[in-house]
């Protein structure tokens, strides 16, 4: 069991327990983390599970593929340097820290 810290755009944080192997998006949705919409349930179709990964941890993640990269260009909140779609981030052994953007839709 690891944990993920979700911080919203106003700076409020909540820590959620996560199972290695699940995605960050799934973990957020199951616990009802506000700020993650995830309409498409993780099939890389909607860009409503946008998160900004703590820059110190960005290199720990597998690199994104073209589809994810292109979806992020259309995200409702302008992307940042460490933006990712949380449906594409697998929970590993590290306690991840991500920030949710102001809006997803």
């Amino acid at each position: 069991m690891t944990s993920i810290t979700f911080t919203d755009h106003l700076g409020e944080s909540r820590v959620v327990a996560a199972n290695p192997g699940d995605t960050v998006m799934e973990t957020a949705v199951r616990h009802g983390v506000p700020g993650i919409v995830a309409e498409c349930g993780g099939s890389l179709s909607c860009a409503t599970c946008h998160v900004i990964v703590d820059p110190a941890q960005a290199d720990l993640l597998d690199p994104m593929d073209d589809m994810e990269d292109e979806m992020l260009y259309g995200a409702a909140t302008e992307r940042s340097a460490t933006s990712r779609l949380s449906c594409q981030i697998r929970v590993g052994e590290v306690d991840l820290r991500v920030t949710t953007p102001e809006t997803q839709v």
């Binding site: 589809m67 292109e70 979806m71 260009y73 995200a75």
Partner: peptide, 9 residues
């Protein structure tokens, strides 16, 4: 089809 940029735009 396989074109997220156009879709999102």
């Amino acid at each position: 089809i396989d074109h997220p940029l156009d879709f999102m735009a």
